[in-house]
Amino acid sequence: TFELKGKVGKVVKIAEDHYLVESEGDKWIAYSDEKLSLGDRVMVVDVDGLKLKVKRIP
């Protein structure tokens, strides 16, 4: 299986209740415990079905 946990991506869209993150050339629906901005670099900390939980990284 394709393992996304630990992968790095970038926030490419902000929606009302989720983010769109591009990682490894694909776009994924993501959510975070912190507020993210367009262009933020993020790391995948968990995968919930087809949704990614991400956190901001420097």
Rank of each mutant, 00 (worst) to 15 (best):
24 E>R: 02
3 E>S: 01
49 G>D: 08
5 K>Q: 15
55 K>P: 00
18 H>N: 10
20 L>D: 05
42 V>Y: 01
58 P>Y: 09
54 V>K: 00
52 L>K: 01
53 K>Q: 14
13 K>V: 11
10 K>N: 08
55 K>H: 13
31 Y>C: 14
52 L>M: 03
3 E>C: 03
17 D>A: 12
53 K>S: 13
20 L>R: 06
44 V>M: 02
6 G>C: 03
1 T>L: 14
53 K>V: 06
48 D>H: 07
22 E>A: 05
3 E>L: 02
47 V>Q: 07
56 R>A: 12
52 L>S: 02
37 S>A: 11
31 Y>G: 08
45 V>K: 03
23 S>F: 14
2 F>K: 15
22 E>C: 12
31 Y>Q: 13
52 L>Q: 02
54 V>M: 02
20 L>P: 00
30 A>G: 06
55 K>F: 10
27 K>H: 08
37 S>Y: 12
35 K>I: 11
24 E>N: 04
24 E>V: 04
50 L>S: 08
19 Y>I: 07
45 V>M: 11
13 K>Q: 07
6 G>V: 01
30 A>S: 14
4 L>H: 05
23 S>G: 06
41 R>E: 14
39 G>N: 13
33 D>T: 08
41 R>D: 14
4 L>R: 02
49 G>R: 07
54 V>T: 02
6 G>Q: 01
48 D>P: 03
41 R>P: 14
8 V>P: 13
16 E>N: 10
24 E>Q: 04
42 V>A: 04
11 V>G: 00
47 V>G: 03
29 I>A: 10
17 D>T: 13
27 K>R: 06
34 E>T: 05
26 D>G: 07
33 D>C: 11
25 G>P: 05
27 K>E: 10
2 F>A: 15
5 K>L: 15
51 K>E: 13
12 V>A: 05
10 K>G: 07
37 S>M: 10
57 I>Q: 13
52 L>D: 01
52 L>G: 03
11 V>Q: 00
43 M>F: 09
1 T>G: 15
4 L>S: 14
3 E>A: 01
26 D>S: 11
40 D>C: 06
52 L>P: 06
21 V>G: 01
56 R>N: 07
15 A>Y: 07
33 D>E: 09
28 W>N: 02
18 H>L: 11
30 A>V: 13
11 V>Y: 00
10 K>H: 09
19 Y>A: 08
26 D>W: 14
7 K>S: 10
39 G>Q: 09
12 V>H: 05
24 E>S: 04
22 E>Q: 05
13 K>A: 10
58 P>W: 06
36 L>D: 00
42 V>F: 02
18 H>F: 08
32 S>A: 12
43 M>G: 03
12 V>T: 12
21 V>K: 00
39 G>K: 06
30 A>T: 14
41 R>V: 12
42 V>R: 00
36 L>M: 07
17 D>M: 12
4 L>N: 06
25 G>R: 03
53 K>F: 12
28 W>M: 06
29 I>W: 12
4 L>A: 14
28 W>S: 02
21 V>P: 00
31 Y>E: 14
56 R>K: 11
44 V>C: 13
25 G>S: 06
41 R>H: 12
30 A>F: 01
44 V>L: 02
32 S>F: 02
22 E>K: 07
45 V>R: 02
29 I>E: 11
2 F>M: 15
47 V>P: 04
12 V>F: 06
38 L>M: 09
42 V>H: 00
34 E>A: 06
1 T>Y: 14
42 V>M: 01
38 L>F: 11
56 R>Q: 10
37 S>C: 09
46 D>Q: 03
18 H>M: 12
55 K>C: 15
34 E>H: 07
53 K>A: 06
54 V>H: 01
47 V>Y: 05
8 V>R: 03
26 D>M: 14
5 K>T: 14
25 G>F: 04
17 D>L: 09
3 E>R: 01
16 E>Q: 09
25 G>V: 04
27 K>S: 13
51 K>F: 13
3 E>G: 01
17 D>F: 09
16 E>F: 11
18 H>I: 12
14 I>R: 08
34 E>D: 09
58 P>L: 08
25 G>M: 05
49 G>N: 12
44 V>F: 15
46 D>F: 03
58 P>N: 07
57 I>Y: 10
23 S>P: 01
57 I>H: 14
37 S>W: 09
26 D>A: 13
21 V>A: 05
35 K>S: 13
56 R>T: 12
45 V>C: 05
53 K>I: 07
56 R>C: 07
11 V>E: 00
44 V>G: 02
43 M>H: 06
21 V>H: 00
24 E>F: 03
44 V>K: 01
52 L>F: 03
31 Y>D: 13
40 D>G: 03
54 V>F: 02
6 G>E: 03
32 S>I: 03
29 I>C: 13
44 V>R: 01
28 W>G: 02
48 D>Y: 12
10 K>L: 12
57 I>L: 10
1 T>M: 15
48 D>G: 03
14 I>L: 09
32 S>V: 03
8 V>T: 08
26 D>I: 11
30 A>W: 01
16 E>H: 10
42 V>P: 00
12 V>M: 10
14 I>Q: 07
16 E>C: 12
25 G>Y: 04
42 V>S: 01
57 I>W: 13
9 G>L: 08
43 M>R: 01
46 D>K: 02
32 S>M: 04
44 V>S: 02
28 W>H: 13
16 E>M: 12
46 D>G: 03
36 L>C: 09
43 M>K: 03
10 K>F: 06
50 L>F: 12
13 K>L: 10
33 D>F: 09
37 S>P: 02
55 K>T: 14
20 L>W: 09
33 D>H: 08
8 V>W: 04
5 K>D: 15
43 M>V: 15
17 D>C: 10
43 M>Y: 08
31 Y>W: 13
36 L>V: 04
4 L>D: 15
13 K>P: 00
3 E>D: 04
39 G>W: 11
11 V>I: 06
46 D>E: 06
44 V>Y: 04
18 H>C: 12
51 K>G: 13
20 L>A: 05
46 D>C: 08
1 T>Q: 15
16 E>L: 12
22 E>W: 06
29 I>H: 14
20 L>T: 10
39 G>I: 02
